[in-house]
Design a protein around this nucleic acid. Structure first.
Length: 277
DNA sequence: CTTGTGCCCTGCCAGC
DNA sequence: TGCTGGCAGGGCACAA
């Protein structure tokens, strides 16, 4: 479910209510959720100072400099003051605050994970991450440069978190449609002009999705249990067989790197060099 | 370095 | 109706 815009939505909701809250207790119901069980020991007594996002990871910064790092994976959700009924199933962890407020991590598929890191302790999962797609210092020229140094199919490269941090299957397909680029093109064959289109489309799509509160297709909900709206603006994702909004050619779905790629075979046709007669 | 496979988990849906 | 296989937005380990 969650890619950059969804994680950004969750982070901003948590940011609106967590800072200043002191943790009273942590109950881990799915032991694999927490590395080593350090969280249940380290978090009680800590006051959360700030919540932010890096790639698809959420970070809770605490008063002693420690950081709780959380990844939602496919179906993980942080919920603020959940209804008691929702705490009956799929609960990975419950964090109770001194104020009486509750944070719960719900996760149907139980892939979500969290780790506690002491002050100045290295955080391995964040160190390999590529740049933030919306970072102003990531210019089209720098993006092109990074693409040229790799030799991977475009869509697969966009999903690589060491290349860019935060894109997932939905937004990779959507931005390539907007950029009118073929998902199967090798990244080292992209021209500077095409890289500019990717850069522009990526920023446009991500900003729009953030504005819409993310994409809710089945599972995703924000920390206030609200749905996103970007699913109404999807042009190719999960639209296989439907006419392209630009040229009416049926949208195609092809499995690429073990996951679905949606694209318009006409608007995003491969350059001639890749399809010789 | 790249691509492919299996796996972690559960729920849902199409097809038989 | 009931079962089965395939599928799902992520990411990791491992093999070729």
């Amino acid at each position: 479910m969650p890619e950059l815009p969804e994680v950004e939505a969750v982070a901003s909701e948590l940011r609106a209510c967590c800072p200043g809250e002191t943790v009273r207790s942590v109950t881990v119901r799915w032991p694999k959720w927490a590395h080593h069980g350090r969280i249940a020991k380290a978090l009680p007594g800590r006051t959360i100072q700030q919540v932010d996002r890096r790639g698809k990871y959420l970070r809770f910064h605490c008063d002693n400099g420690g950081i709780l790092v959380s990844h939602l994976r496919m179906t993980g959700r942080w919920l603020v003051d959940p209804d008691p009924v929702t705490l009956k199933v799929h609960v990975s962890a419950i964090v109770r605050m001194e104020s009486g407020r509750t944070l719960a991590f719900l996760d149907v598929r139980k892939f979500g994970r969290a780790g506690w890191y002491a002050p100045d302790e290295p955080i391995p999962e964040l160190e390999a991450l590529g740049p933030e797609p919306l970072d102003p210092s990531l210019t089209a020229a720098r993006l092109w440069d990074r693409m040229c140094s790799r030799r991977k199919q475009l869509k697969t490269l966009l999903l690589d978190q060491t290349f860019l941090a935060g894109l997932g299957n939905i937004y990779a397909s959507e931005l390539l449609f907007r950029a009118k680029l073929n998902p199967f093109v090798s990244s080292d064959e992209v021209t500077l002009e095409e890289a500019r289109r990717i850069h522009q489309a990526m920023r446009f799509i991500l900003r729009q999705a953030i504005r819409e509160g993310g994409t809710t297709i089945s599972d995703y909900r924000g920390a206030r249990n609200q749905e996103g709206n970007f699913q109404n603006l999807l042009r190719v994702y999960q639209r296989a067989g439907e006419p392209c909004g630009v040229c009416r050619t049926p949208i195609a779905r092809i499995v690429q790197g073990q996951r679905s790629t949606f694209f318009c075979p006409h608007c995003q046709s491969a350059p001639a060099i890749l399809s010789p007669r």
